[in-house]
Nucleic acid binder design. Structure first.
Lengths: 161, 161
DNA sequence: AGCAGAGAGTTCTGATTCAGTACTCATCGA
DNA sequence: TCGATGAGTACTGAATCAGAACTCTCTGCT
């Protein structure tokens, strides 16, 4: 399931290496987050939900799956499991900064869904709180002081090699 | 992305109906896009891949699954299947504007993965092609002409209700 | 005419993972 | 002691995954 860097039996072009590397990190991302529940779970956590049964009720997720998802997120360092009570041991799950850093991605998905998938029901729209303007999400270049679209993005390898 | 300690939710307003409605559209989004392959497929398409066998080779995806994913994306209006040659009928798959609108979400996921999941391998960083500056992703308010982080986002219901 | 080959799939297999109901286990409060 | 609460497990069938092999229609070559 996890694709190790060694596991490149099907690449024939060598300019694929860059892609391969990038793919493997995004593959890891998707292996973590790319299923029907994990994003929903994180979203619930962003709304302040912390306990097992609350997640269960809020999302309508089956318990064994919730157990598995929470464990996976804790293992990945996106949530922590903390005991908030000794005597009957009770735990709560909290987001780590790493998970909070995912919020732009989650917001982008929510926005896209609202704009492209909502049917008869009016979607919630996200606005800039200070002025109430409908949210735009763009890429911002501090050097050029402009926003730009996806066509102006290029990937370059970072680091010493 | 700046984070303020007290802000652990994107927006609260615990109107249950609001949440419920929003959840259902994000659920649809995730049902479409929330699996191990779809995002990877879209990413490949963003890189210019258009043909069945090329997707197959590039992603290492099994053919039946690719068939299913492409069909799902075409049905959802994210891709079009166009015949580019008559005589042996050959098709290619192209992204629609609706899919291109997903790019902020995909970029956000890639970036997050590169920052939080990459191990020893240096991650590819995304840059603004014209000037080479490292990509910032922000929310942009056209009215205020500023960018802002997730803390300044509020959700409001659109339409009646 | 005959045959290899490309492109775009479809049909079969098993192996995994998903999802749901029902159950456990410990503890508290009445 | 009885029941409720919180946090899980066990066990089940359904769906999805991965891979190999197969089909079908043309094209290009000989």
């Amino acid at each position: 399931m996890e694709r190790t860097p060694e596991h490149e039996h099907l690449h024939e072009q060598d300019d694929r290496r860059d892609r391969q590397r990038e793919a493997s990190t995004i593959e890891k991302t998707l292996a973590l987050v790319g299923d029907r529940w994990t994003i929903l779970l994180l979203r619930a956590a962003f709304r302040g939900i912390r306990r097992f049964d609350d997640f269960c009720a809020d999302l309508g997720i089956a318990r064994p799956i919730l157990t598995a998802r929470l464990r996976k997120l804790v293992d990945a360092g996106l949530m922590t499991k903390e005991q908030y009570q000794q005597h009957p041991p009770r735990y709560e799950y909290r987001l780590t900064p790493s998970a909070i850093a995912l919020s732009p991605a989650i917001v982008a998905l929510v926005r896209w869904g609202d704009e492209h998938l909502s049917t008869e029901q009016p979607a919630t729209i996200l606005v800039h709180a200070p002025c109430g303007t409908k949210l735009q999400q763009a890429f911002w270049c501090a050097t050029c002081a402009t926003t730009f679209g996806p066509t102006a993005i290029r990937g370059i390898p970072s680091g010493p090699n």
